[in-house]
Computed example of a mutant assay.
Amino acid sequence: MLKFNEDAIKKDVEETLALRKDVEVAVKKICEKGYDNIFLVGIGGTYAVAEELMSYLKGHSKIEIYLENAADLTAEGNTKLGEKSVMVITSATGNTPEMTDAVRYGKEKGATIFGFVDEKDSPLAKETEILFSCKGGAYLKLLVIMLAFMKEKGEFELYDLFYQQAESLGDALINVQKEADKKTEEFAEKHGEDSMHYVVGGGMLKGAAYSYAMCYMEEMLWMRTKSISCADFFHGTLEIIEKDTNVTLFKGEDHGRAQAERVERFLPRICDNITVFDTKEYHTPGIDDTFRELLTPMVMAAIYARINVHLENVRKHPMEIRRYYHKLDY
């Protein structure tokens, strides 16, 4: 398989899970001290990942949780942010100015800053009070933190079982990538040079559609896209879909599945150019169906990791190239 590193996939998962006990200790101290609310703060891809998890948390936790775009939080403020707030963040580089500004704003309000920043010496890491550093995906990092808070509140009874099975997570995601490789290669060959891409997702995959369209197709592959939530698809976007319009639907195993199925049923009436990536079609050995909802974003991320590889190859465009992002002063 092209650009496929099983060791790297497993390492990313294992490094995050190895910090779980330390995260639990930190969360327990916060809970013993007492807190009022939690703010999930991100921008761009990290906001999208937080949105994925927030979609789950809204239906499974009674913790008072707010989802905030870092730049908007700094500009607009939030009267709920205060001395008994916990701001949860993730970042790879730690150099995104909007995130650093948001964290400084949170500290001014007295909030506790808690999160994962890969680069320990970065500006954002230096502003983070409770800091963990490792490589790996942002979703799993946020999940480890938020499940620990849910456990302390008595909301996630299958906590121990989940982490027993999470020992198989790296291998499970490797299997997903293997199973997805042929279909994603065919997708890239068919659509790699299309002039426009519509990416639709609902529930926990609304954030995945947003992230994939913006952070991968636009930023890394220079492809024109629009992401649409399944909930909003019937309130505008359907009017510009034609027979040959390229539409990609991300379909998960969470509460948003019914919305995705509604879009899937309708599209063939007006369009002949539809691709559906359904997480349910891919197997995760060692992971029970009980946890497939919770892991839906990670399964989809494994699928589109293979889309990335094949689009990069078809378009002969290395994903590391940037013209403006972190290249110009803005």
Rank of each mutant, 00 (worst) to 15 (best):
D12K: 00
E14T: 06
E15A: 08
E15S: 04
T16C: 13
T16Y: 07
L17E: 07
L17Y: 07
A18C: 09
L19S: 05
K21W: 13
K21F: 15
D22S: 11
D22F: 02
V23N: 08
V23M: 05
V23L: 08
E24V: 02
V25H: 09
V25K: 04
K28N: 10
K29G: 09
E32R: 00
K33R: 13
D36E: 13
D36H: 03
N37M: 06
N37K: 07
I38V: 14
I38Y: 10
F39N: 13
L40Y: 00
G42C: 05
I43R: 03
I43W: 07
G45N: 03
T46P: 00
T46L: 03
Y47K: 03
Y47T: 04
Y47S: 12
Y47C: 10
A48Y: 11
A48Q: 01
A48P: 03
V49F: 01
A50G: 14
A50F: 10
A50T: 12
E51K: 02
E52R: 01
E52V: 02
L53G: 11
L53Y: 10
M54E: 09
M54K: 08
S55T: 06
S55V: 08
Y56P: 06
Y56I: 07
L57S: 06
L57D: 15
L57M: 09
K58T: 12
K58Y: 10
G59W: 04
G59C: 13
H60E: 15
H60M: 06
K62T: 13
K62F: 06
I63D: 15
E64A: 08
I65T: 11
Y66Q: 14
Y66L: 10
Y66R: 11
Y66E: 12
L67A: 10
E68D: 12
A71Q: 14
A71L: 02
A71D: 07
A71F: 04
D72L: 06
D72A: 08
D72W: 00
D72C: 08
L73F: 01
L73E: 04
L73Q: 05
T74N: 12
T74H: 15
A75K: 06
A75C: 13
G77K: 06
G77W: 10
G77R: 05
N78Q: 11
T79R: 06
T79K: 07
T79Q: 10
S85H: 06
V86K: 02
M87W: 08
S91I: 01
A92E: 12
T93A: 09
G94S: 05
P97D: 15
E98K: 03
E98T: 04
M99P: 00
T100S: 06
A102I: 02
A102T: 05
R104W: 03
R104M: 13
R104K: 14
G106S: 13
K107N: 11
E108M: 14
E108D: 12
K109G: 13
G110K: 03
G110E: 08
G110P: 01
G110M: 02
A111N: 10
A111Q: 07
T112S: 12
I113Y: 03
F114C: 09
V117A: 03
D118R: 05
D118F: 09
K120F: 05
D121E: 12
P123F: 10
L124V: 13
A125S: 06
A125N: 03
A125I: 05
K126H: 12
E127P: 01
E127V: 06
E129W: 02
F132V: 05
S133K: 02
K135T: 14
K135P: 08
K135A: 15
K135D: 15
G137E: 13
